[in-house]
Design a protein around this nucleic acid. Structure first.
Lengths: 162, 162
DNA sequence: AGATTTCCCGACTACTTCAGTCAAGAATTC
DNA sequence: GAATTCTTGACTGAAGTAGTCGGGAAATCT
C-alpha cells in the first residue's frame, strides 16, 4: 500500500462524488475540480484509473460525468488508493533485488516490521468506507488495542508527530 | 510521520547496531555499511541525524564507532524514523496553504481520515522497540481490533497489498 | 610527533517520481 | 453539426532519493 498525495486526491474526489451524487445525474469532473481545487487534467488521469478498476462508471456528452459503480458504503478507502497508486515495489524486498533486502539470500532484519506495518495500514484503510469519510466517521470502526505498552514515555515527544 | 526508504535504512542500521553491540566496543559505520549493503557516506548522513537526536553516541579514533544511547528496549522505531525524516508538511493541511486542504477556510473532507491514519501509524511504530525488531517480535504488541467489519470481502482482492 | 583510523560536515549530482500541463480525439446530446 | 464531456498519450518542471566526493577533526598507536 503506497501513500501519496495522488491517493489522497483520489479519495477527496471520490468523497466529493459520493456527496454530490444526488438523483440520477452524473457528476462532471469540472465540478469536482472546482470544488476540491484539483486541476481538471489531473482529475482525468485519476478517474481513468478509477474507471479501469471498476470503482466508477462514466457517462459522456452534455450532462455526462461520473457515477459511483457501487454504493458508497461498499467502497473501501483502500480500494481507491490501490486503484490510483502503482502496485509499488513492495518494500524493495524482492527475491531478485541485489540491494536493501534479501541480504545474503535471507530476508533483511526489518522485513517483518514493514510487512506488518503495511498490513496495519491496509486493515485500517479497508475498514473505512467512502460513506464513513463523507459522514466523518473515521474513528471507532477500527481501533488500535495496545496491550502492555512497556515503552516509557520519552522526553523528546515534543517533536512533530503524525 | 513520513515513510520513506531513508527511514527504513535508518531502522536497518540501528537494528544492526543493536545486534552487534556486544561488550563495550562501539560499532563502526564501515561494518554496518558492509553488512547491510548501505553506502558508507549515506550512513554517515543518517547517523549524523541520529546523533543530533540523541539516539546514538559516537566514539572517534581507531576502534571507534557508534553506540546506542539507550538500551534497545527503550528505543522506539518511531523515534528513529522521526530523527532521519524531515518534519513533513503534515498532509498539506496547513491553515495558510492555498490548495488541497483548507478549502473555503474549512478542513477538507478527508482531513480527519489522514489525521487518524497518521495517528494509527505513529501508535504502531511507537509500540515497537528496536529490541522487538531485532528479536523479530513485531506482531502481538499492537493488534488491530476490528469490530464488526461490515465491508464485504471484494472480488478484486488479488491486487498486491501491503 | 606522525601516521592511521574513525567520525564529521558540507557541497554536489544522477536519477526517479510526483504533480500537473498540453493537445488531440471520440462519444453523446441538443 | 456544434457543444459538451469523457479518453488518451505525450510531455515537463520541481522536488526528493540515494547517493558521491573531498576535505576536515579527534583519538589512538607506534
Amino acid at each position: 500500500m503506497r501513500l501519496s498525495t495522488k491517493g489522497r486526491y483520489a479519495v477527496m474526489a471520490m468523497a466529493d462524488l459520493a456527496t454530490h451524487e444526488a438523483g440520477s445525474r452524473p457528476v462532471s469532473l469540472a465540478d469536482i475540480a472546482e470544488r476540491q481545487e484539483i486541476s481538471l487534467s489531473y482529475l482525468e488521469q485519476l478517474f481513468a484509473k478509477l474507471r479501469r478498476n471498476g470503482l466508477v462508471s462514466s457517462v459522456r456528452g452534455p450532462g455526462g460525468g461520473y457515477r459511483l459503480s457501487r454504493p458508497s458504503e461498499e467502497v473501501r478507502v483502500a480500494d481507491i488508493i490501490m486503484a490510483v497508486d502503482e502496485p509499488i515495489t513492495a518494500t524493495r524486498c524482492k527475491p531478485g533485488s541485489a540491494k536493501g533486502c534479501a541480504t545474503q539470500g535471507a530476508r533483511c532484519i526489518t522485513h517483518d516490521l514493514w510487512e506488518e506495518l503495511g498490513r496495519q495500514i491496509h486493515v485500517f484503510l479497508s475498514s473505512v468506507s467512502l460513506a464513513d469519510v463523507v459522514e466523518k466517521r473515521v474513528l471507532g470502526r477500527a481501533q488500535l488495542d495496545l496491550q502492555s505498552s512497556e515503552v516509557p514515555a520519552q522526553d523528546g515527544d515534543s517533536r512533530a508527530a503524525a
